[in-house]
Nucleic acid binder design. Structure first.
Lengths: 129, 129
DNA sequence: GTTCATGTGCTAAAAAATTAGCACCACCTG
DNA sequence: CAGGTGGTGCTAATTTTTTAGCACATGAAC
């Protein structure tokens, strides 16, 4: 899902895509339970069908229930979402976005994670990027 | 603008907020020029007025022209946007989001920027976070 | 078998979003 | 001054989105 396609989404469509992305997959009931100001079950299903028609979602059957997953890969979705934020809010500067993340007050980063990030920075240096 | 408020935005509203955030401020004509599949000028103005009524934007007059700016601070908007992506696509893991940014293929990070990020990681270590 | 709970496909109505157009204003140029 | 250009406020029509409800299907429990 590239940024242009996400911009096509209406309010509810986008809320639903966010729910499914955050869980990786979801049934209609799970989507319903996670939506702000939730409508009825049949409203959710109608929107899921629309999102599938538009190509954003697909479904498989698990028993009697449809389970919906994003059509694009998780990695692709992640990169697209990040790029949109970098472009929109950080004038395209990846380093500023990283810096903002590193200084975010909400989340502690463990020693192990800091080491991993350290390695990535070292790699970036080695690759001349 | 916290994530819940952004979720209230309709398709066009969100496109417009993105334009204004990426520029820092914009006139109606600038918004119009930057929109995908642009409507007419008066349609853009009507939406800007709606966004102002909802509290997302404010305007000041520059000569004869209205210039619209986000109601929330740039820093606040950045953090909100990042948090949404971290929560939705990275299960709340800041370090994974940072790692994804560091491995993004699109953008080169300069030596100076790498040093700055290095410093931020060092600070995170010193502060025990 | 029946009943109940929960699922689906589909549709149309209701609500919201989007759009364009009118009337008017401000400013600049000839 | 008049005309042209570009701005605004406002409204209503049009389009899109959202919603709920009907009919039917499925599976489990009795």
């Amino acid at each position: 899902m590239n940024p242009n396609r996400e911009q096509e989404l209406s309010r509810r469509e986008r809320q639903i895509m966010d729910v499914i992305h955050s869980r990786g997959q979801a049934t209609a009931a799970e989507v319903l339970a996670a939506l702000p100001e939730p409508p009825g079950y049949s409203a959710v299903r109608a929107l899921l069908r629309i999102l599938e028609t538009k190509g954003h979602l697909r479904h498989h059957r698990a028993g009697a229930v449809y389970v919906y997953t994003p059509s694009s890969s998780p990695e692709s979705a992640r990169q697209s979402a990040l790029q949109r934020v970098v472009t929109t809010f950080f004038q395209g500067s990846v380093s500023q976005a990283v810096a903002a993340l590193l200084t975010t007050p909400e989340k502690e980063i463990s020693e192990t994670e800091l080491n991993e990030l350290q390695n990535l920075i070292n790699q970036a240096r080695k690759e001349g990027r």
